[in-house]
Structure formats: structure tokens, C-alpha cells
Design a protein around this nucleic acid. Structure first.
Lengths: 234, 234
DNA sequence: CTCCGTATGTACCAGTTGGTGAGTTGGCTG
DNA sequence: CAGCCAACTCACCAACTGGTACATACGGAG
């Protein structure tokens, strides 16, 4: 994800330089550097000149391959989203019991978000722009979070087993989990500045991770508050 | 609103205006316009020229009063944060029972965040800048979220009454509530674009609001999972 | 009325930024 | 080897951007 050592990737090739003519590689390098730049400074704050300078190619090449700053940014977004949807459906939906499964899914999401802060930054940035670029993309809308399918299955099994409430759907739960995970990364800095706690402090990680599992599990297992008053758990 | 004709401007004086020489008013107007501009386009994306154009004064005045773009932005942040901390401690902490109180606090936070989307945008923007401006401010750190005090009281009373778990503190709960509320506003656009649901759709508002209350209430009332296995509530 | 600092407007600038025209070279194909 | 096109370099620019030098008018103090 970060800058890879120059010579290591393709077999052969001189260690330091010797990048003669390799469209694929040039394009990939531009995209990688651009990802860092935009994730770091936002779209408006990101500088084409700076991206060019950090690449082994020139600014002209950026326009050769991507056409414009905006198209480059969209390409960055698309690649980032694409790289994310991989690790999603690893939950053993069918064999774990629903509560264990939902905890597993929460934990997985937790780890996943924590491992990809750059992606979360890009998402935040894109939200500031009201998702106007993402909306213009042709590739993104249909990836539709495969985690949702797993989540839906877990919820259904939980309801059938009579342990989950039935007034929330998969998107609701996804929103809760995602909100929790995104918030602690995306709002880490102001939260820390104003409240004096670093939500990503490794010492607190286990607690935070457990808390998310408890949160979602307790929520789903709670008696439907529409018929059982909140103060009277049996 | 746009460029005003030089000579003809308000030949006939406006009734309440009389903006001949009014430092206070000029300053305030700049700040208001700047707030919108920065909330709308971010710090790097915000344009001093644009702010000036939308004001009845000139760019020169911005520098006269605020010195630089960055100082103006910090002033915007400070005013935004200051304007927020008002509505916070309205919960009747002492008289409501803990569960009702925590639901009330959650609902209040929910309404509050929903009513101030610009503030949330500014916070998002500031997080992208890693809170570097907020950190430099001298006023912000000590406002320390008065809601936390109320929250602390609620938690303590709930624990004393034996209905709340004791392994989470006020900041933890605040993080959960805040995360939920911030997420649905801050990430509204990408969530909508990728998952096809508008978290702020008025038709869903009641459900979302209730869900947050249930979430927090269920979480706090859940048996301590460290001694009671999740699958076996007797 | 005169004085004077504060508030304000005009014109301007130097540096940067996204973007491009046009020529050059590597290396594959025939 | 000739031909050719994709890949690449270099120099250049118009527009904008944050910022400022300087002139000026308001309006209260004396």
C-alpha cells in the first residue's frame, strides 16, 4: 500500500533506475503516488506538480494517462474502493451461531478499517465533495458491499432462531458497525484534540474492539422495545 | 450578493442597514460568509476572493481583520465550536431514571447533529488536516464537551442502580453516540452512492433516532459479557 | 471646523496551478 | 533496416490565488 522499494517488484531490472519504457508501471506509479497525495491533502489540496515530482515521470505523463486532475482523482477513488471489497466476505456465516457470527463480522470490519486509514480519508474527502466524483464513476455503484449479503444471512438466521430483533435490516446494522469503525479513524484528531483521548491508541484497541462486538450483539439481542418497556428486562 | 455596482449601490440607504462604518458588523459578516465557504469547499478549496465577493466588503478587509487565510479559518472553527456547546446539557440527569436519561441524551445529540450539518462538515475537514488548526487554537481545548459531565452522572447512577454495565466510561459512550450521529451526516453521500440509502431521509428519521436510543440502552444494560457467555442469557 | 486614527476601497503583484503544444525516442513489426 | 506508434521529455502559458502598497473617507474628539 505504501511506497514499494523501486527495484524489488519486476524481475530483472536494475535496482535504482533503468525504467525505460513501461506504460503499466508508469501508470501504476502515478496512481500510487496520487493516492497518497489526495488522501493526505484532499482533492483541492492535492497538487499535480507534487505528484509528478514524487514520481519518476513528469507531469505531462499524468495528463497523458489520466487527462485531468479530476479524472486522476476518480481513478484513485475507483482503485481504492476496488482494493477494499476483497477482504469482506470471510465470515463463516453458515456455521457460526448468529451472535458469534455478528461479532465476527464486527471484529473483521473493525480490523479492516483500522488497516486502511488512507481509504477512510479518501472517503471522508469524497464526502466533503458530496460524493460528486464517485457518483460520476461507472464502476463503483455495483460493488454494493458484499458484506451486506453475509450480514443479511446472519440477521435472518438470528431472527429465525428467535434471538435477534426483527425491526432492523442489514443496512441498519451495517450503518452502526461502519459508523463506529469509521468514526474512530476519521474523527480521531478532533476527538483527541477536544476530548483528550486517542481512539486509536493501541493500548485501547482491545477494549474498543470488544466494545463494538458487545454493542452490536446487545442491540440485536435486545427485546423489541415496542412491546417490552425498556426498564423491565425479564 | 454578487458584485455590487460601484456608484449606484445603495444610494438610498437601506432601512436597517446603514453599513457605512461598522467594524463589528463587517467582521461578523466576513466570518459568516467564510464559514459557509470553508464548510462547503474545505480549507484548500475555499477561496478568499470568493468570500470577499460574497461580502459587502472587499478582500482587503479580510486581511485587515483576520490577517491570513489560515487565521480566518481558525476563527471560523473557533466560532463554530463555540456556537455548538450551548445546547448540550439539557438532559434532566438527576430526575430521569438512567435508561430514560441515556435515551434522552442520545436523542438530543441526534437532533443536535442533524441540525448542524455545517459544523460536522467543518469537523470532517479539520480531521483531514489532522486537527492541526484546532490544535493551534487557544480557546478550544477547554470546552471539553459539557455533555460528558451529564453522561458521567447518568452512567454512575445507572451503575449504582445495578442496571448498567461497569466496564465502559463516559468517553466510550460518548464515542458510540457521537460516532453514530456524525457518521450518518458526514458519510451520507458515499453511503448513499454505494449502498443506495439516504441516511438522512426524513422518512427514516424516526427509525434512525429510535435505533440510536435502543443501541445505547441495550449496550449499557447488557450483562457484562466477561462473565456471562453471549449465547446464554438465562 | 479641524484633526486624526480607524475603517475601507482600488489597483496591483509575484508565485503557483492545472493544463498543453510540439517535438523525441524506444522498441516492436514487417 | 525502415517504418511507426506508443511512451516519453521539455518548455511554456493563461488564469488564478493569497497577499499587499497606497490612497481615502468616515466620524468622533477637541
Amino acid at each position: 500500500m505504501t511506497a514499494h522499494p523501486p527495484g524489488a517488484a519486476p524481475a530483472g531490472r536494475r535496482a535504482g533506475a533503468e525504467r525505460v519504457r513501461d506504460a503499466e508501471r508508469t501508470r501504476a506509479e502515478i496512481l500510487a503516488v496520487a493516492t497518497r497525495e489526495f488522501a493526505d491533502r484532499g482533492y483541492a489540496g492535492g497538487r499535480i506538480n507534487e505528484i509528478a515530482a514524487r514520481t519518476r515521470t513528469t507531469k505531462r505523463m499524468i495528463y497523458y494517462y489520466f487527462g485531468s486532475k479530476e479524472q486522476l482523482y476518480v481513478a484513485v477513488l475507483e482503485q481504492a474502493y476496488a482494493g477494499i471489497r476483497a477482504l469482506e466476505q470471510q465470515v463463516d456465516v453458515e456455521h457460526l451461531d448468529p451472535v458469534a457470527a455478528i461479532r465476527e463480522l464486527a471484529a473483521l470490519t473493525f480490523d479492516h478499517h483500522e488497516a486502511h486509514p488512507d481509504f477512510i480519508r479518501l472517503v471522508s474527502i469524497e464526502n466533503i465533495h458530496r460524493a460528486e466524483h464517485i457518483a460520476r464513476s461507472t464502476v463503483l455503484p455495483d460493488l454494493a458491499e458484499p458484506a451486506l449479503a453475509a450480514l443479511g444471512t446472519i440477521l435472518r438466521r438470528g431472527r429465525e432462531a428467535g434471538v435477534f430483533r426483527d425491526d432492523v435490516d442489514a443496512l441498519d446494522v451495517h450503518q452502526v458497525i461502519s459508523g463506529y469503525c469509521v468514526f474512530r479513524t476519521a474523527n480521531r484528531h478532533t476527538f483527541g484534540a477536544v476530548l483528550g483521548r486517542d481512539m486509536l491508541d493501541p493500548a485501547r484497541r482491545h477494549h474498543q474492539r470488544t466494545m463494538l462486538g458487545d454493542l452490536v450483539a446487545a442491540f440485536l439481542q435486545a427485546p423489541d422495545p415496542r412491546r417490552a418497556p425498556a426498564t423491565a428486562p425479564r
